[in-house]
Design a protein around this nucleic acid. Structure first.
Lengths: 237, 237
DNA sequence: AATGTCAGATTGACAGACAGGATTATCGAC
DNA sequence: GTCGATAATCCTGTCTGTCAATCTGACATT
C-alpha cells in the first residue's frame, strides 16, 4: 500500500510562490486520506470481511501515526464498514444475509425518495443530465466492463441525488452503497441482469421526464428490489 | 460538567474479587462516554448551534486526554451533530431551514418504511407493545410535560423500529432524530399540535393492527410531514 | 482608513509509554 | 497423550508531551 504524503513538509519551503497549488494539495488532512484508503481497501476487497485490522500494521503500511489511524477508524466504524470488538480492535464488517436485506430496504426507500424529489424539483437541465447518464450507462453495459458499469452507475446516482432537492440524501445513500459494494460487483457482472436492470432504470427516467413523482417513486423502488433479489441470491449460493 | 470516571484506576486493586461488577462498570470505554456526553450536551441544548468546541476545554471539563476527545469528536462529526472547520476545529451544527427539511424528508421515508415492515413482520406481541406505547404516549400528552412526552415518544419509536424487521433502521433513525432534537422539543410543546399528532399516530397504529402495510406507510409518512411543517414553521419565526 | 505585521491560541500530527484484556503457547499433572 | 493451568505475547485503550502549521485578532504603520 502506498504511503501517504505528509502534506506540510514538502511544500513549506516554497510556500510563497506556490501558495494556491499548495492550498489545494494540502487540503486533505492525513486522517481523511486514511479514511479514504480504508474505505477503498474495504469496498475494493483488499481487506476481506472478518479480517482484523491491526492498528500498528495500518500505521506501518500507510506511514502515519496511531492517533491518525484511530481517528480514521472511528469514522469508518460509524459508516458501518468495520466493527470494533472491545479490547480486540476493528474487523472488517461481515454482512449477514439479513444485513444485506436491511441495507437494500433502506437504500430502496432512499432511492425512491430521491427519484420522487428529482421528478418534482429538478430543472430541465438536470433531467437532461440524467438522460445523458442513462445513455452512458447503456453504453457501459454493452462493453460488459464491470469497472465502466460501476462508474456509469455512480454518475447516474450522483445526478439523481443532487437534483436540487435533499441535502443529506447523497451522503446517506453513498454510505449505504459503500456497505454493499463488494456484492454489487458480483450482481452487476451477470449479463442477464444487465438488460433487465437497464430497462428498470429507463422506467425511472421515463417517469421523471413525465414529471410523475409517484411513478418515479415506484419505478425506483422496483429497481432496487430487483437488484436486492439478485444480490441476496448470489449471497446465498 | 461532571468528570468522567477513569475506568481502570479505582478498580485495579480489587480486580480478582469484583470481576463481574467491574466489567460492567468499565465496559464503556472513555471515548464512548465522551461521545454520549457530547451528544447529550448538543441535543440537550447545553452547547448552542454555532458554538465552537475547543478540544482543550472539553478535555478539562471531562477530565480526559485529547486523543480520546478527538476520537469522540470524529464520531460525533460523522453523525452530523458537529461540523469541523479545517484548522479551526469543530462547531455545533447549525441547521438551516433546508437542512431541517431534508432531514425530515429522510426521516419520513425511514419511518414509513419502518411502519410498513412492522405491519407485515411484527409478532402479535409486538403489536400489543406498540399499542401500549401509544396509550402511554396519550397519557404523557395529557400531562403536557415535555420531558414525559419525549420519553414516551422514544419508546413508541423504539418498539416500531425493533419490529423484527430491518436491523440498520433503528440506528439510522436515531441519528436522524438526534439532529433535530432541539427542534422537536419546541414543536412538541404546542398543545394544539398534540391532539393532532396523537390522532396521526393512532392512524398508524390502526393500520398496523389491520396488518395493512400500505396504509401504515401512508399514515406514517403523513405524520412526519405534518411534524415537519410545524418544525419548519417554528424555525422560521 | 486600509493595510501589514506579529503574537497568541488551537488544530493537526507525531512519538513514546504503560496498564490491562485477550489469545496463544507452554508446561505439568493425571 | 490429553487436559487444565500458568506464563508469554500481542494489541488495544489511554495518557503525556512535543512540534509545526494555521488562523485570529490586536496593534502598528502608512
Amino acid at each position: 500500500m502506498a504511503r501517504l504524503m505528509r502534506g506540510s513538509a514538502p511544500f513549506s519551503r516554497v510556500a510563497e510562490t506556490t501558495n494556491i497549488a499548495r492550498v489545494a494539495a494540502v487540503a486533505a488532512p492525513v486522517r481523511s486520506q486514511v479514511v479514504e484508503m480504508l474505505r477503498a481497501a474495504i469496498t475494493g476487497g483488499q481487506f476481506a470481511p472478518g479480517q482484523r485490522l491491526v492498528e500498528k500494521d495500518l500505521c506501518d503500511s500507510m506511514g502515519v501515526s496511531r492517533p491518525s489511524v484511530r481517528e480514521a477508524l472511528r469514522q469508518v466504524e460509524s459508516e458501518g464498514l468495520i466493527v470494533t470488538i472491545p479490547n480486540r480492535g476493528p474487523i472488517v464488517s461481515q454482512l449477514s444475509v439479513r444485513d444485506v436485506a436491511s441495507i437494500y430496504e433502506v437504500r430502496g426507500a432512499l432511492e425512491a425518495l430521491a427519484a420522487q424529489l428529482f421528478s418534482t424539483n429538478a430543472s430541465d437541465e438536470q433531467v437532461k443530465d440524467l438522460d445523458a447518464a442513462v445513455t452512458q450507462l447503456e453504453a457501459a453495459y454493452k462493453t460488459s466492463d464491470v469497472e465502466k458499469i460501476v462508474v456509469a452507475k455512480r454518475i447516474f446516482y450522483d445526478v439523481l441525488m443532487e437534483g436540487r432537492g435533499n441535502i443529506i440524501l447523497p451522503t446517506l445513500f453513498r454510505t449505504m452503497n459503500a456497505r454493499v459494494k463488494q456484492l454489487r460487483r458480483v450482481s452487476l457482472s451477470s449479463p442477464k441482469r444487465a438488460t433487465i436492470s437497464l430497462r428498470e432504470i429507463r422506467a425511472v427516467l421515463r417517469a421523471i421526464k413525465q414529471r410523475n413523482p409517484e411513478a418515479a417513486f415506484k419505478a425506483s423502488l422496483h429497481h432496487v428490489k430487483e437488484a436486492s433479489k439478485v444480490a441476496l441470491a448470489s449471497l446465498r449460493s
